[in-house]
């Protein structure tokens, strides 16, 4: 099972690089959406021998939330705000990709320093998680438009979800559902604000948010 799981994690890590290299918002949103679906499949793969309703619930909620609902909200926000489809980077696409690639290698190396339980050895969960965190940070810092920053935040959250999978068997559902609720609500509110920012500034350009400074 571990082989298939690692394959899926590897795909998710590949999507990180696509997200970093894409110059158009729809591609970025699609990358995030596909990553959400992959993440939803992972708990089922991990627990395939002792599948219960909790794991299925987490999987379904993840696919519905990260894979469908949030991307559709993002697309709606993009249409409603009538913004251009280009991403507009602070950090260029090639430097972003290089940073992402170096980060991925560093994540694999760093993950070796942390001890794992025998059943988790050989899984790519920790490197995948670290790489996604880093990708999220690069997008948060290196992109101008509010929607691409939201996508960066989502990839960051996906990285945390990947790490959470290590604990899916031991921690109560409360923690798991708390994550999903948070992601959905958080982006929902961010979406509203994006909408408001649009009305106030007539663009989603966070570079214009510079009135407040010393």
């Amino acid at each position: 099972m571990s082989g298939i799981l690692n394959l899926v994690i590897g795909l998710a890590m590949g999507l990180n690089l696509i997200a970093l290299g894409s110059s158009r918002l729809p591609t970025l949103i699609r990358a995030v959406s596909v990553q959400g679906v992959l993440l939803g499949v992972m708990p089922v793969l991990m627990e395939s021998e002792r599948l219960d309703w909790r794991v299925l619930l987490v999987a379904l909620a993840t696919i519905a939330g990260k894979g469908l609902l949030i991307p559709s909200l993002l697309r709606r926000a993009m249409r409603a705000a009538n913004i251009e489809r280009e991403v507009e980077p602070f950090i260029g696409f090639v430097p972003s990709l290089l940073l992402g690639a170096v980060g991925t290698i560093a994540a694999v190396a760093l993950a070796r320093a942390l001890p794992l339980l025998p059943e988790h050895v050989g899984m790519l969960l920790v490197p995948g998680s670290l790489a996604s965190l880093l990708t999220g940070f690069i997008l948060l810092i290196g992109r101008v438009k509010a929607i691409s920053q939201v996508c960066g935040y989502l990839i960051l959250e996906n990285g945390i979800f990947l790490f959470g999978l290590l604990l899916i068997h031991s921690t109560p559902l409360l923690v798991e559902s708390g994550i999903l609720l948070d992601v959905t609500v958080g982006v929902f509110i961010i979406g509203i604000i994006v909408d408001r920012i649009q009305r106030a500034f007539d663009s989603l350009d966070t570079r214009k948010l510079t009135a407040l400074h010393e």
Partner: peptide, 14 residues
């Protein structure tokens, strides 16, 4: 106020 809220959410959310 929107600008402040956006920054609050982005930094606080992270």
């Amino acid at each position: 106020a929107f600008e402040a809220t956006w920054k609050y959410l982005l930094v606080g959310g992270t």
